[in-house]
Design a protein around this nucleic acid. Structure first.
Length: 262
DNA sequence: CGCGACCTGCAT
DNA sequence: ATGCAGGTCGCG
């Protein structure tokens, strides 16, 4: 599920349910989540009130009336569920219940999500500027890439350089900008940086809109047809019909068009 | 830097 | 049975 657009959308769901509400119980159902949010912390949340939910990169931060902050990171497969009456899916790993009877459930088949409680609001903690932050300019992005010799695709995945881009949209954005994912980050020409940033934002914004449009519908998220290159190895490039290639970079699959991305 | 670990479900 | 997955950390 979650790269920046999905997390952005999830944060709006969480905000709608939780903002202004007081927590009446926090149940952590899986040992993996219990490790990051021990029973003591979960218990201490009861009685606290949620002031707001913000997203930064791929993490969500719940600002609490006590001054503390609950961080939620979905990792690979987390998502929020607003459970109605009835059985709770077995992939639900934690449930936060509020004073009005509503609740927010962390649904995560792989149970890799991380919940952490902080006494102080975290600063930037090393995370780079958010990819959708309008204050981020091409020049700054260029500056952050200039010193890196790693491939541009790997650099885009590094949250310290720019926050919010994951494997799918890194591939998609590079295709859009016609940049070879293998070239060193420092070699991206200054003149193509604005195009890269535009491609990143267009890709993320399109995904966010799709997310909003299809929320609650039965569209299959894994349907690859909406990607230009991701998961389309061997299929024709939408621009030039060349076969999409798949390579491995930093132990992740990279998909690209060997002809128009060079 | 690359790679295993963290977890589970799904496709092959 | 095997291998792979939208993320991140910590190890060598």
């Amino acid at each position: 599920m979650p790269e920046l657009p999905e997390v952005e959308f999830a944060a709006t769901v969480a905000r709608r349910i939780a903002r202004g509400r007081t927590i009446t119980s926090v149940r952590v159902l899986h040992r993996s989540q219990r490790r990051s949010l021990p029973a003591r912390d979960a218990k201490s949340l009861v009685g606290d009130r949620i002031l707001d939910v913000r997203r930064r990169g791929k993490s969500q931060r719940f600002a609490l009336a006590s001054g503390r902050e609950l961080h939620v990171h979905f990792r690979m497969t987390g998502d929020w569920l607003a459970p109605g009456p009835g059985a709770i899916p077995r992939t639900v790993r934690a449930i936060i219940t509020f004073d009005d009877g509503t609740s927010l459930a962390l649904d995560d088949p792989r149970a890799l999500s991380v919940l952490t409680l902080h006494n102080e609001p975290a600063g930037d903690d090393g995370i780079g500027p958010d990819a959708l932050d309008p204050a981020l300019r091409a020049v700054e992005l260029g500056g952050r890439l200039a010193t890196r010799r790693i491939p541009i695709k790997v650099a885009l995945l590094d949250q310290r350089i720019v926050a919010g881009i994951g494997n799918i949209y890194a591939c998609e954005a590079l295709w859009r900008a016609r940049i070879d994912p293998r070239i060193p980050a420092s070699r991206v020409k200054p003149t193509t940086l604005p195009a890269l940033l535009r491609a990143i934002r267009a890709t993320l914004n399109a995904a966010l809109k799709r997310q909003q449009r299809y929320y609650g519908s039965s569209e299959d998220w894994s349907d690859a047809s909406r990607f230009a290159v991701y998961d389309r190895e061997g299929e024709p490039c939408r621009r030039c019909r060349t076969r999409i290639k798949r390579i491995t970079q930093a132990a992740r699959s990279t998909y690209f068009c060997p002809k128009c991305q060079s």
